[in-house]
Design a protein around this nucleic acid. Structure first.
Length: 536
DNA sequence: ACTATTGGCGCG
DNA sequence: AAAGCGCGCCAATAGT
């Protein structure tokens, strides 16, 4: 070590860090660090992976708001550095130096770790929160690894797809030929030669000028109309969306060119815990909105396969389990819970089962869903009581928690102000109506929070278990490359594909046991071993 | 010329 | 214009 100069010292430490971590990893520790998103990418670039960690920043966020740890000193303390948002690794200098001189030093890490343990000691049932913290931390590792490894992506297939639908790639900024032809067709049919169909106000004015009774230009409303312009206009919108969201510009910005013997790569920037309910978000690239139209470009490297797996009707199954509703769990015993509802005589048709279930979980009150939910409530009173109770709590301004204890945010001060105004003696009818509407809005949020958040916990446990199984499989070559709420993609050497498919199923069963013990609920998967995401 | 908001739509 | 939750992203437009 050089003496005296701390900066030089830090550089030496930084250079040695990956080797040191690799060395210590042999003892299979649980690394406790401030922020996986800040620390792990540099290790991954150096070729070092760790098995387990505790991400203090993510865990702090959970414990800070969890109802179960509300009395802890962690929860009572004023906001501090641990409440800051994640650092964005992409914005950081590509050296290890700043990883060693973060705003949060080793003493703070040890102090925070002790504070989190103390917070857990306050909880009546700390086992669930402990599991949640472990799952959240595993998710942070997975997110960093998937971002690093990337989703295999074939630029030629993508380009062919675009050319087939839009016509040849135009010069920068111009409309591709097929899109321009559709725009012209729309202009002609509306007798408006200068119309820019990308401008909603302009389009709305023009449509109304042509005698069409519309209040917006959204496709749901347009689809109801009977007019020659509707078909080309909807087609224009569909293709314009593809071009702007996942066209050539997107490909140039987000798809890394292929290395020898490999496809290109899409490196989404996942944000674990980025959604209030605990779901992940992404930053840039729109990885969680990849349209079906372009999924054909997701193809494995030569000699490799994609194993695509999604959990069938995850949210209703999670609801059945957390409500301990054995009747509803029984309806999900097969591979299709919605068909199970038909077979149990609750509804006549599968489509009705789906509408009813979604309506119950989202809080629908009108239309088909509103009609069908009461039938569900009669058949499955325990499950429906759980979401109804969550809604009532939210309408009163309270908080609700997921199965593992992630707690919803309280309504904002402005929400309370609206409620207070409505309860004053001289409140007029419109103030009361507005307060009532806002209360119901928040109730639908808390209703859904319990289900969506608990399902996100199942998915985290599923992925964490799967990740360990993949590490143990042969040489660990098979790896997760994509995650979408209830769906994963594993990129694997072809010879391991069947083992991977089995591991994915075992991990799902494992997640169910981990969360819900002996409660007899199934989490069946649709699993496909494919040469293209579009085949799944 | 810049940033913030809106309308619209993709995903689960 | 979504009825019914949660997101992110784009182009156009409004605001400064």
């Amino acid at each position: 070590m050089p003496g005296g100069d701390p900066a030089a010292h830090a550089v030496v430490l930084a250079a040695q860090l990956p080797a040191r971590v690799r060395d210590l990893e042999r003892a299979r520790p649980r690394w406790v660090w401030a922020d996986t998103a800040a620390t792990y990418p540099a290790l991954l670039r150096a070729g070092v992976r760790v098995e387990r960690c505790q991400d203090l920043r993510l865990c702090h966020a959970i414990l800070r708001h969890a109802a179960a740890t509300a009395g802890s000193s962690l929860a009572m303390a004023p906001p501090g550095p641990w409440d800051a948002p994640a650092v964005d690794d992409a914005d950081r200098a590509p050296t290890l130096l700043d990883d060693l001189a973060p705003a949060i030093g080793p003493d703070e890490v040890l102090t925070e770790h002790a504070r989190q343990r103390a917070a857990l000691a306050v909880a009546a049932d700390p086992g669930r929160l402990r599991l949640l913290l472990a799952a959240e931390s595993a998710g942070a590792l997975i997110a960093a690894e998937m971002s690093h490894d990337g989703l295999p992506w074939d630029r030629e297939i993508h380009d062919d797809l675009l050319t087939g639908l839009l016509g040849a790639r135009p010069r920068q900024g111009a409309r591709p030929p097929r899109l321009e032809a559709l725009a012209d067709q729309v202009r002609t049919l509306l007798e408006s030669p200068a119309l820019n169909p990308d401008s909603p106000p302009e389009l709305l004015r023009t449509l109304r000028g042509a005698g069409l009774d519309v209040t917006s230009t959204s496709k749901w409303e347009l689809a109801e109309l009977d007019h020659p312009v509707i078909a080309p206009l909807l087609e224009y919108k569909r293709l314009a969306r593809l071009l702007s969201a996942n066209g050539w510009a997107w490909m140039d910005a987000w798809i890394h060119p292929p290395a020898a013997g490999r496809r290109g790569r899409f490196h989404p920037d996942y944000v674990p815990g980025g959604v209030v309910t605990g779901r992940w978000a992404t930053r840039g690239g729109g990885a969680l909105q990849l349209p079906k139209q372009v999924r054909g470009a997701v193809v494995p490297d030569p000699g490799w396969k994609l194993v695509v797996a999604d959990a069938a009707q995850l949210e209703p199954r999670v609801l059945a389990a957390l409500a301990r509703d054995e009747q509803m769990a029984r309806a999900g015993r097969g591979s299709d819970l919605y068909q199970g509802l038909v077979d149990a005589g609750v509804v006549q048709r599968r489509a009705h089962a789906k509408v009813a279930m979604l309506g119950a979980m989202y809080g629908a009150t009108t239309g088909d869903a509103g009609q069908l939910v009461p039938r569900l409530a009669r058949a499955y009173p325990r499950a429906i009581a759980v979401v109804d109770r969550a809604a009532q709590t939210g309408e009163r301004g309270g908080v609700v928690s997921t199965w593992l204890g992630r707690t919803s945010p309280p309504p904002p001060e402005e929400w309370h102000a609206v409620q207070r105004r409505a309860s004053e003696a001289d409140a007029d009818e419109s103030a009361r109506r507005r307060a009532r509407r806002r209360a119901r809005d928040w109730g639908r949020f808390t209703r859904n929070f319990v289900v969506q958040g608990s399902a996100a916990e199942w998915a985290l446990c599923w992925m964490a278990d799967l990740r360990l199984r993949l590490r143990a499989l042969d040489d660990g070559a098979a790896h997760l490359v994509f995650f979408l709420h209830d769906e994963v993609i594993v990129h694997t050497p072809a010879r391991l594909a069947d083992d991977v498919a089995a591991a994915v199923r075992e991990a799902a069963a494992g997640a169910g046991r981990l969360l819900f013990g002996d409660f007899p609920v199934d989490f069946p998967l649709d699993v496909a071993v494919v040469d293209s995401y579009a085949e799944a």
